[in-house]
């Protein structure tokens, strides 16, 4: 069954220094993207407690996106390295628990990559929609 646009709900965790600022840049550039994503600002992807993602899926989120500074550009020097390590583990763990891989995404978006953020959200939306429609 085709999902209604409205029904897809994606939670986004964006680090304050790169991706959140990048998403602000998306706004400055008026790049349109799906409104399904609700953004939560975090200081750094290194702050990501896996519980926050598990909780999002547990509460019924269709998708989760975590986005931070490009590796090497972290405002806190190395915070995103911890996230880079955590992500694949968490992804395979979630898959093991039955969370389809199309639902959980990570990306690197810098403060100047406004257009890229819009593209990332579109891609995440498309994958989540694909999962929702086709299983």
């Amino acid at each position: 069954m085709e999902s209604k646009v409205k029904e897809i709900n994606i939670v986004g965790f964006l680090c304050n220094w790169c991706s959140y600022a990048g998403a602000d840049m998306t706004g400055l550039g008026r790049n349109i993207y799906p409104s399904n994503i609700k953004v939560i600002r975090i200081p750094c992807t290194g702050r990501m407690d896996p519980m926050m993602i598990i909780e999002a899926f547990h509460n019924g989120a269709d998708g989760v996106l975590v986005s931070g500074c490009h590796p090497g550009d972290c405002h806190y020097t190395e915070g995103n390295f911890y996230w880079r390590r955590r992500y694949p583990h968490l992804k395979s763990l979630l898959e093991h628990f039955g969370v389809d891989r199309r639902r959980f995404h990570a990306s690197w978006v810098s403060a100047s990559e406004g257009k890229k953020f819009a593209e990332v959200v579109k891609k995440v939306y498309a994958e989540v929609k694909d999962w929702k429609d086709n299983g």
Binding site: V5, A23, D24, G27, L28, R30, I32, Y33, S35, K38
Partner: peptide, 20 residues
């Protein structure tokens, strides 16, 4: 943040933008 993250990027659908 309902400007950079809403009105400026979801101007294609006012209803959905308002809900967000």
């Amino acid at each position: 943040n309902i400007r950079e993250h809403v009105s400026w990027v979801h101007s294609d659908n006012k209803e959905l933008a308002t809900e967000k």
